[in-house]
């Protein structure tokens, strides 16, 4: 298993041009990583490029199926506060 883009991807295109292995596909409903092509950027960069620019927490999973950018790691919003906000917005709709 390599890196994987899941449905929370917002199609911002940031990752696609950075991939040294041409592994990222501009697919719909969301971008995809070709498991065959992805090298985890080994030999090219210290950090996986897609993971390093993706603005959406949880949109990319690592080879263990875990969020490469977990909740709170990019926005700085504590997870509890985020969850509370989502619940509040849902309740008011």
């Amino acid at each position: 298993m390599t890196y994987q883009i899941i449905e929370t991807c917002v199609n911002c295109c940031a990752c696609e041009p950075l991939c040294p292995s041409d592994a990222i596909i501009e697919a719909r409903p969301h971008f995809l990583i070709s498991a065959k092509k992805c090298t985890e950027c080994e030999g090219d960069y210290i950090d996986p490029q897609c993971v390093s620019i993706c603005p959406i927490e949880g949109a990319i999973l690592d080879s263990f199926g875990k969020a490469a950018n977990p909740i709170g790691s990019l926005t700085g919003i504590p997870a509890a506060q985020w969850v509370a906000m989502i619940a509040e917005v849902r309740a008011s709709v």
Partner: peptide, 16 residues
């Protein structure tokens, strides 16, 4: 131009 190279605290890329 959808991609961004920074994050600002007044912006949320998810909400569009």
């Amino acid at each position: 131009a959808p991609a961004c190279n920074i994050q600002c605290h007044y912006c949320n890329r998810k909400y569009d």
